[in-house]
Computed example of a mutant assay.
Amino acid sequence: MEYFDMLNEACQSMGLSFDEEKYNKFIKYKDLIKEWNQKINLTAITDDEEIIKKHFIDSIKVFNCDYVKNAKSIIDIGTGGGFPGIPMRIVKEDSKMVLLDSLNKRINFLNEVINDLNLSNIKTIHGRAEDFAQTAEYRQRFDLAVSRAVANLTVLLEFCLPYVKVGGYFVALKGPAIEEEIKAAEGALKALGGKIEKIIEVDIEGSDLKHNLLVVKKIKDTPKKYPRKAGMVTKNPIK
């Protein structure tokens, strides 16, 4: 139970319950990350304690935002090794969760995690964010989109906002320095129908790490032309 207190403290700080069953799922998840990381590149972080702090606790800190707690349908875009979606699902299972990633090897890993941890109300989709956002099944269907993907805000907005219902939210998990990204993303926010609601600074238990949750409200429909075709979003960001 080496890391129980750390995870418990993080959950309690956000009004979430934590118990031994959830703890055991996190430990199993950690072990699967380490096992699969020898075959495919999931993360550069391989130390047990660092995985707990920098992946698991960092991911569940998204619940510092009340909109996240209340969302009934969530999509995690560019989920990679399952962050923040799987830690979110472990601590709170009462919403539908979709994990989207473009690499099939990572999807195979995520499916094994979902099966081994016996997680419910969660599914994976393999493909590009630009493509699924243009389908009737996924476009503007979610209360909440989340992303911890390593991309600048302008790019993330075009990937993520098309999935969000009007009145819903996109929450980006970002590092401490985001002011320049926000300034550069003003054109994208306007074009895509978003408005910055708030920035929430979060601390990570057992470390001096500080991160930000950037909360964007969807205030109007995203024009059908967004997101643009694969490659365009990153090569020619919205000004």
Rank of each mutant, 00 (worst) to 15 (best):
A145I: 08
A145D: 00
V146M: 02
S147P: 00
R148Y: 05
A149G: 03
A151W: 09
A151R: 15
A151K: 13
A151G: 10
A151T: 07
N152C: 05
N152A: 08
N152Q: 14
L153R: 08
L153W: 11
L153I: 11
V155N: 11
V155L: 09
V155W: 11
V155H: 12
V155A: 12
L156D: 12
L156A: 10
L156E: 06
L156P: 02
L157Y: 12
E158S: 11
E158Y: 14
F159R: 10
F159K: 04
C160M: 07
L161S: 09
L161W: 13
L161M: 15
P162G: 04
P162I: 10
Y163V: 05
Y163I: 06
Y163L: 04
V164H: 00
K165R: 14
K165T: 12
V166T: 13
G167C: 04
G167A: 03
G167I: 04
G168I: 05
G168N: 05
G168S: 01
G168K: 00
G168V: 02
Y169G: 04
Y169V: 00
F170N: 08
F170Y: 13
V171I: 12
A172N: 03
A172H: 01
A172G: 11
L173D: 02
L173A: 08
L173R: 00
K174L: 05
G175C: 09
P176A: 06
A177P: 00
I178W: 04
I178H: 00
I178G: 06
I178T: 07
E179G: 10
E179I: 13
E179N: 15
E179A: 15
E179V: 02
E180M: 09
E180G: 07
E181N: 07
E181A: 06
I182S: 07
I182T: 03
K183Y: 13
K183P: 07
A184K: 15
A184L: 15
A185F: 13
A185P: 11
A185Q: 06
A185G: 08
E186Y: 11
G187F: 09
G187I: 12
A188N: 07
L189M: 13
L189Q: 08
K190V: 10
K190E: 14
K190T: 11
A191V: 06
A191H: 04
A191T: 02
A191F: 03
L192T: 04
G193Y: 10
G193M: 05
G193F: 03
G193L: 02
K195M: 12
K195F: 13
I196N: 05
E197S: 12
E197D: 14
E197F: 02
K198F: 01
K198I: 04
K198T: 10
I199C: 03
I199S: 08
I200V: 15
E201V: 13
E201H: 13
V202D: 10
V202C: 14
V202F: 00
V202E: 07
V202Q: 09
